[in-house]
Structure formats: C-alpha cells, structure tokens
C-alpha cells in the first residue's frame, strides 16, 4: 500500500479524475454539461498516457545539437554514480522521456476538439428543434409525440 502511494500516485489521481468525468457524463441530464464531462474524461486519459511515458530525471524529447559540448549536469551526476547503466539512453548520454505517447496524444487532442465540435453542433440542432437541452424534457416531448401518432392511427 505504501508503494502505491509513493510510486503510483499518478494512476490514483488519474482514476479519480477519470471517474469524475464519467460521473458527469452519466449523471447530468444537461447535454452541454455532459460534453464538458466527456472532455474532462478525455483529458484524464491523456494524463494517463503521458504519465506512463514520463521518465524521472528525463528531458523533453528534443535532442540537443549533435556536438558533445552540451553536457547536462544532472546527467553527469547520475552517470557518475553509474545508476543509469541499464537504462536506454541516447548516444549523447542525455535521458529523454518517451516520445511515443506524446505523438499519440498530440493528435488525439486535435481530433478530440473536432469530435467535440460535432457533439456541440448536434446539441445546437437539438436545441433548435426541441427548445431545450435537458434530456428529461426531450424524452417527454418524444413520448407525447409518439402517443399522438398512435392516437391518430
């Protein structure tokens, strides 16, 4: 349990945030609030991916110039102790965080806003037709409408 708090606290926080977003999606009956919850959920998933790709003591994955004149002081500290022997590191000896989750999430963010725009435009059309964005009222209108159709037949 102590290892959970010390080493894996990021997952705990991400799960709390994720479940908060999910709760907003499930519980709120307002369509725009639902979409806000969805985007909170989405951002939490991004956080999960990025925290997995983090390497402690690492640098952003922007490789410095190929010359050896630039030496990171922190890296020399690590390297002198020999702690990083088993570690995958670039040729210049600097430790970088994993770039792959960054790439995946980078595109996911932009696609996320595009899908959010689709959702919002659906909400706008729903509002224009039904006059409300509360799910309960929309369901009630639908019920009345179908009842009327059945009565007519």
């Amino acid at each position: 349990m102590s290892s959970l708090i010390l080493d894996q606290y990021n997952y705990a926080v991400v799960i709390i945030l994720m479940m908060t977003g999910l709760y907003v999606v499930f519980a709120s009956r307002n369509l725009i609030k639902k979409l806000v919850g969805l985007s909170v959920f989405q951002t939490s998933v991004f956080l999960l991916y990025i925290t997995i790709g983090k390497v402690s003591g690492g640098q952003p994955p922007i490789v410095e110039s190929h010359g050896t004149d630039h030496v990171n002081s922190e890296t020399t500290l690590f390297a002198s102790i020999g702690e990083l022997e088993s570690v995958v590191q670039s040729s210049s000896g600097v430790l970088y965080s994993n770039p792959l989750p960054h790439v995946l999430i980078l595109t996911a963010i932009v696609v996320g806003v595009a899908t959010l725009a689709i959702g919002l435009s659906l909400v706008v059309r729903v509002r224009e037709v039904y006059g409300t964005i509360e799910e309960d009222k929309i369901e009630e209108y639908d019920r009345i409408y179908y009842k009327e159709i059945i009565e007519r037949q």
Partner: peptide, 9 residues
Amino acid sequence: FGDVNSPAN
C-alpha cells in the same frame, strides 16, 4: 511513476 525500465519506456 517515472520508471525508465517499464515496458512502455
């Protein structure tokens, strides 16, 4: 968190 030897990294 921050493990360099994790499968992902």
